[in-house]
Write a protein that binds this DNA or RNA. Structure first.
Lengths: 136, 136
DNA sequence: ACGGAATATTCATCATTCGGAATATTCCAA
DNA sequence: TTGGAATATTCCGAATGATGAATATTCCGT
């Protein structure tokens, strides 16, 4: 991915929010949809866009499609995410919702594909306050 | 300027090159044109775009229009320029050409508006090797 | 007033992006 | 094999962006 494309990933707010989430670990499309409260089509299109740019890749796992940032993550991207999280509370908020959502689905029988499920355990430990509405 | 617009400034290579030059100090459109060897219309349009985003501003000085980065320069922009210069030799090259060009016009009777002219003195001191073709 | 230098704008075209709505696909479970 | 969940695609219209050619404007010097 060239630097121009890298900046395109960050130049649109919904795209940035998705990249911000995926930087913490892989997620399925429906999880992103839940965490960000955005429509399915918008999520799917932005993911396709990011995939075209080479920023993310995915593989199907049964009913789900697991999305991840393409490795290795460009240090320029990582540094920008770090700086952006410091300045825009929304991004930090999204990360909290991410942990909350993962913790919320951790108890379900088959909550998510393995790579996502692994994070649920972590989220359980770090997200004791319930801060997303899907937690039952 | 919001962060999305900031990244738009960096997402196109010609635009990035212009911002990179202006980060070192104000320049006229024709100077940018010379340093980057790009067409007048393209320069003018990208400058208009950057002005629309709020990244640059300008004021007319006789026949010239002096462009500057809008103050204060966002630290996020500055940091990205710093990192980009380390990874893309082209940007560092442009800066050398910038210094070479300014040194080259330093001896002319009326080389440029005052804000640009001031940098010519600096360029004279720092640019002893002649690395641009306009130097006569 | 005229010519030239520096800059801006218009026009036409092509490609990209975006939005919403609708529909299609893939997979699993029962 | 039918249904539902997750995801992708298509269609459409509106908006934006880039390019190149041509033209317009602004200003200065003479």
């Amino acid at each position: 991915m060239n630097t121009g494309d890298l900046y395109l990933c960050l130049a649109e707010s919904d795209r940035l929010r998705i990249v911000n989430l995926l930087a913490e670990g892989p997620l399925c499309g429906c999880h992103i949809q839940n965490i960000l409260s955005l429509g399915q089509v918008k999520i799917s299109k932005q993911l396709a866009y990011l995939k075209k740019l080479g920023a993310v890749n995915c593989d199907r796992e049964a009913n789900w499609v697991v999305y991840r940032l393409s490795e290795p993550v460009d240090p320029l991207l990582a540094e920008n995410l770090r700086l952006l999280r410091l300045r825009s509370p929304g991004l930090a908020e999204d990360l909290k919702n991410r942990a909350g959502f993962l913790a919320g689905i951790a108890h379900e029988e088959k909550p998510a594909p393995e790579p996502v499920q692994k994070q649920c355990c972590i989220a359980m430990r770090f997200c004791h306050e319930k801060n997303n509405k899907d937690t039952k």
